[in-house]
Amino acid sequence: MDLDDILGPRPDDPLTALLREDLDRLSVAELEARVTALEGEIARCRAKISGAVNHRASAEALFKR
């Protein structure tokens, strides 16, 4: 069981703050910049996931020998 499951999300979690942020105050240009930044972060996360999956597969293949 994950610690977050027991304690719940941290109140200072940046993702939680990001999701609760009021978007009404942002201009179209600011919203577009935000989307671009978030898409970059998504790409970075996907690359990290891919690397982790490949690393694990390599380790499993090594230890199955």
Results as ranks from 00 to 15, higher is better:
1 M>I: 03
1 M>G: 09
2 D>N: 04
2 D>K: 00
2 D>Y: 02
6 I>Y: 06
7 L>D: 02
7 L>W: 05
8 G>I: 00
9 P>A: 11
9 P>G: 07
9 P>F: 01
10 R>G: 03
10 R>I: 00
11 P>Y: 08
11 P>V: 12
12 D>S: 14
13 D>C: 09
14 P>C: 00
15 L>W: 12
16 T>G: 15
16 T>H: 10
19 L>F: 05
20 R>P: 01
21 E>Y: 07
22 D>L: 06
22 D>I: 08
25 R>H: 09
26 L>Y: 12
28 V>T: 15
30 E>T: 06
30 E>Y: 10
35 V>I: 15
35 V>F: 02
36 T>Q: 10
36 T>G: 05
38 L>I: 10
39 E>T: 04
40 G>H: 04
40 G>T: 00
41 E>P: 02
41 E>Q: 11
42 I>D: 02
43 A>P: 01
44 R>M: 05
44 R>T: 14
44 R>L: 03
45 C>H: 11
46 R>E: 15
46 R>I: 06
47 A>W: 08
50 S>A: 13
50 S>L: 14
50 S>H: 15
50 S>I: 06
52 A>M: 10
52 A>T: 12
52 A>C: 06
52 A>S: 09
53 V>L: 11
55 H>I: 01
55 H>C: 06
57 A>M: 05
57 A>P: 00
58 S>E: 14
58 S>Y: 05
58 S>H: 12
59 A>L: 15
61 A>P: 00
62 L>S: 12
64 K>W: 06
65 R>S: 08
65 R>W: 10
65 R>L: 03
65 R>N: 08
